[in-house]
Each structure stands twice: as structure tokens, then as C-alpha cells.
Design a protein around this nucleic acid. Structure first.
Length: 485
RNA sequence: GCGGAAGUCGUAUAGUGGUAAUACCUCAGCCUUCCAAGCUGAUGCCGACAGUUCGAUUCUGUUCUUCCGCUCCA
């Protein structure tokens, strides 16, 4: 039996054995923190995407979709701050083995110093900023040594050299390798939305407030990528950027917090498995930010971020592209009696990690049940997915592979396969086939037996309760369809 | 990246200086038929590369990968 401690390894094994998730490049010993989705994993992933897309795009008249390219103009990442802010110089203390961001370390020291001397404190920060903007790593180390800045843990000044870790993957566009051809694989999908803001707004005749939703891959060269599919170097995001009138961002931020949490709860996951975590230290672009955290097998971790990004991104792109990123608001401002006029919209971002959501759903669904009776030991592993997320919706099982039962089963198969994903199986005992479907999380199994030939009824068996009932074969399709709503 | 632990069929585990075992899974067949573990048979593993050795899966080194911590994030 898997305990909370070894639940994650149990899930990882189960995912591999039953075709959900394989390590990437498995026959070559894998590739660190990269995974492939197998035949059932890809269905699960698709179903989660569909659920999100439907809730965002289909259910909101003022939200539309987008699929922007992974390659983008390199200046976009200068404008967004990724070139400067996501390439932080780091330093390690050799005694405590702790790693620090150089700016955090020096800022912390300056803060302490400020208690005695405001001036000395400011002086350090000024020289730090200068060194940082010149990428002078040797100078930064010298600054740390000159001021005898110690590691808070070990209390020593035994430092490594300052090194840089760039979170963005770079590659070359075009056949001639040249600095000017260096482009990045996007570290977030958001910028693709921002640079298409006016395209979508104008061509879609969108009126503020409105949103643009996008699902796509993003890439981050994490220093430490760990935790199965929780933190991968290549991952998929489901993002929605919601453009609002300046001054209304607070209420929209709150509103999207509620809406997004409700989406999670609508998956049937209990509220106590979730919590909000408000950011105290805000990113350079935000005026409010929080995470939705889920209680993973390894503890509460972030699944989704909701950020009030202000007008930072559009203003930056306006600056770097020299193209106005403004919206003309015809609505009447009651205080002036005139239209609101031109402004750069504020943005509320909801950004959920698709792979993390998959791990969330798997963690919630994975169940080991002890079915032992005094006569017999018995257990099963069952994935209790919400019906709409299950890779296979219906298994169609002839009780025996003779007496024409297979033919009837295939008729039913053909009737249902257009409406939802079905799985046909005639091998092994019926009990074994039920259990195999439990392991894949199939919510419904239908068995065709001799009685079917007489009165057209079949047995439908429910995954979670293991209960069975007799229904008309002609009702099967509708019954499953009903359960998928 | 640093520290600690570990890599044996698809999964989970044995074991040995003379190239390997068990269970489940999978496959072929038999039997049975509404909840896995009945019978017969089959496929499939010592992460990789070096070194020591007559001989290495076992000892040593390197490397790769994974797990547990530290930092960043979706």
C-alpha cells in the first residue's frame, strides 16, 4: 500500500506501466526532467486542455483564443524583462553549500547596514547596480569580499565565483550563426498574447474588458528541475490575459481569483486540498499576485498563478517597438461625462501549468483499495478521474469471445465511438478486464452476455462503486453522454 | 549546480568474482465466465564506458539517470 511518503513513486511507476507518462528518450537513459505522454496520458492531457478551453473561451463571450509561435523577436524578451531579470548572477557559499542570488545577498547586507548608516547602505546598492548593469561578475565578488558579507548560515566568506544562470534557452535563427540571429525559446506564452493585443482587439472588434487565451509550450532552463512532471524544462501553460480599464484591476483580480478556484473545485476536488498563497514580494511587473496551491504528495505547491500585471507589458512593448499599444474606450466616464478615451490597458493574468494540473489530477485520482474478504485477499489500483477527464470513457466487453457476443459488442462499439473514446477488449476473464480498466481510470464498462441476445440488455459496471446494473443496450450511449456533461 | 542515497526484465523485489531468480504485467493456447492472482508454454533485465582480474552484474573510477534536501518558478 502506498503511503503519503511513497505515493509519488507509486504514481510514477503506475504512469509508466499503464502508458500515461514515460521518461523522455528512455532507451538512451532518459533526459533530465523531460517526459513524454503515452497513449493514455495524451488523452488525459487533451481532456484537461479541452475543459480549460471550454471554461475560458466558450463560456465567455469576451475571451478569444490564440496560438502564437514559440519563436519570437528577440527584442520581446528585452522588453518583457526576461533578458535582464531572468539571468540572475548567483554565488555559492562553499561551507554551507547554499546558493544565493547575488543581488539578494547584497541587498540583505545593505538592509542590516542601514540600521547604522543609511549612507553606507545606499553606497553599496549604487555600486551593486552599476556592476550588475555592466555584467561585472568579478567586481560583484570583490564587492562581497570587500564588505566581508557573510553567509547567514555558515557565517563564512568562503564564496565561489559569481556565475550567471540564464533561464531562457537560446538558439540560432537562419543558417549563419551570428549574435544578431540569436533567438530564444519562449519562457512563457504570455508575451505572444501581448504582442498580438492590437491584432486581436482590432480584428475581433473586442471591447474592454476582454481576454485572450492560449495553450502552449514554454521552456525554462531551470537550475534544478525535479518532482516528476512538476518542474520540467519543457512544459505547457494554459494562460489567459484579461485586459481591463486602469483602476478596475483590483476588482478583476479578485473576480478571476474566484473564477479560477471554482474551475478547480468543479473538477470535483475537495476545497481543503487547495489554498491561496499571496505573494508578498512582487515580481517587477505586478501590483498584486497570488498562487493557487494544491496539496501534492510532496506538499502544497503552486499549480496556478493569478497576477495583476498592471500596464507593464504593453507599456514596455510600446517603448521597444515604438508602436502605440493603446485602446480607445468609448464608454462614458461618469465623473467627467466624457469617454474614457485612449489608454494602455491593465492586465490580469491567469496562468496554469498544464503538466502540473495533470499531476494534480493523477494525485487526486490514484487510489489503492483493499477489497479483502475473510475468504480472500484482494486489492485494486483505480484512477478515480472525473468522467470528463478520463482517457477512456467506456469499455465494451463481450463476456465470452464466442456465441456471437463479439459481434454484438462491435455493433455497440461502432455506435458509441463517434461520441466518445471507447475501448474494446475480449481477452481474459471479465474480472481481470474490469480491474485493467480501473487502472486506466475508465468510468464505465459494459458487458455483453447471452441475455443480451434475448432481450437486448447489457450490464453496466461503475468504476468507483464497482456496482453493476442491467440497462438496455440502446441506452448506453446516452447514459455515458449524460455522465460526461 | 552542491550534499546524501540509489540504478538488476514493463513494474516490484532477490542474488552472486565464474553472465542471473521470484511475483505481477505482457504474449500464445487451454479451461472458466460478471470482479485480478486456475493450467501449459513464451518474450524480456544486471544504465553506459573504462580499470583491476584468467574471468566483473558483483570491486574501483568516470559518466548518465532517478530519488531526498537547498534556490527559482507554471
Amino acid at each position: 500500500m502506498a503511503t503519503e511518503q511513497n505515493k509519488l513513486p507509486a504514481i510514477i511507476s503506475h504512469c509508466k506501466e499503464y502508458g500515461f507518462i514515460f521518461p523522455s528518450s528512455d532507451i538512451y537513459d532518459g533526459l533530465s526532467a523531460v517526459y513524454d505522454y503515452g497513449q493514455w496520458g495524451v488523452e488525459l492531457k487533451k481532456n484537461i486542455k479541452d475543459t480549460w478551453w471550454k471554461s475560458m473561451v466558450y463560456m465567455h463571450e469576451n475571451i478569444v483564443g490564440l496560438d502564437s509561435a514559440i519563436f519570437m523577436h528577440p527584442t520581446i524578451w528585452k522588453a518583457s524583462g526576461h533578458v535582464d531579470n531572468f539571468s540572475d548572477p548567483m554565488i555559492d557559499n562553499l561551507d554551507s553549500k547554499k546558493r544565493y542570488r547575488v543581488d539578494h545577498l547584497i541587498e540583505g547586507f545593505a538592509e542590516q547596514l542601514a540600521a547604522n548608516s543609511e549612507e553606507a547602505s545606499k553606497a553599496i546598492l549604487v555600486s551593486m547596480d552599476q556592476l550588475l548593469s555592466n555584467d561585472d561578475f568579478a567586481g560583484l565578488k570583490q564587492l562581497i569580499i570587500d564588505h566581508k558579507i557573510k553567509c547567514p548560515i555558515s557565517g563564512t566568506c568562503n564564496w565561489t565565483d559569481v556565475r550567471q544562470f540564464n533561464l531562457m534557452f537560446s538558439t540560432q535563427l537562419g543558417s549563419v550563426a551570428d549574435d544578431s540571429d540569436t533567438i530564444y525559446l519562449r519562457p512563457e506564452t504570455a508575451q505572444g498574447i501581448f504582442v498580438n493585443f492590437l491584432n486581436v482587439q482590432k480584428s475581433g472588434r473586442m471591447k474592454i474588458p476582454f481576454g485572450i487565451a492560449q495553450i502552449g509550450k514554454a521552456f525554462r532552463n531551470e537550475i534544478v528541475a525535479r518532482g516528476f512532471i512538476f518542474r520540467m524544462r519543457e512544459f505547457e501553460q494554459m494562460e489567459m490575459q484579461f485586459f481591463v480599464r486602469p483602476g478596475t484591476q483590483k476588482e478583476w483580480y479578485e473576480s478571476w481569483k474566484t473564477t479560477r478556484m471554482q474551475w478547480h473545485l468543479d473538477l470535483g476536488i475537495p476545497a481543503e486540498k487547495y489554498r491561496f498563497h499571496d505573494h508578498v514580494k512582487l515580481a517587477h511587473y505586478a501590483d498584486a499576485a497570488c498562487d493557487i496551491e494544491y496539496d501534492f504528495p510532496m506538499g502544497f505547491k503552486e499549480v496556478e498563478g493569478i497576477h495583476s500585471r498592471t500596464d507593464f507589458d504593453l507599456t514596455q512593448h510600446q517603448l521597444y517597438s515604438k508602436k502605440k499599444q493603446v485602446y480607445f474606450d468609448n464608454d462614458i466616464d461618469e465623473t467627467t461625462g466624457k469617454p474614457y478615451g485612449n489608454y494602455v490597458p491593465y492586465v490580469i493574468e491567469t496562468s496554469i501549468g498544464l503538466d502540473r494540473t495533470i499531476l494534480l489530477v493523477l494525485s487526486e485520482a490514484y487510489t489503492e483499495e483493499d477489497l479483502s474478504t475473510p475468504e480472500k485477499q484482494d486489492s485494486r489500483v483505480v484512477l478515480k478521474f472525473p468522467n470528463k477527464l478520463a482517457p477512456i470513457k467506456l469499455a465494451i466487453l463481450p463476456l465470452m469471445k464466442k456465441d456471437g457476443l463479439s459481434e454484438i459488442a462491435k455493433e455497440l462499439m461502432n455506435e458509441c465511438r463517434e461520441s466518445f473514446f471507447c475501448f474494446y477488449e475480449e481477452k481474459d476473464s471479465i474480472g481481470k478486464r474490469y480491474r485493467r480498466m480501473d487502472a486506466l481510470g475508465t468510468p464505465f464498462c459494459v458487458t455483453i452476455d447471452h441475455q443480451t441476445k434475448e432481450d437486448g440488455t447489457v450490464t453496466i459496471r461503475y468504476r468507483d462503486s464497482m456496482e453493476q446494473e442491467r440497462i438496455n443496450m440502446s441506452d448506453v450511449r446516452n447514459k455515458v453522454m449524460e455522465a460526461l456533461k
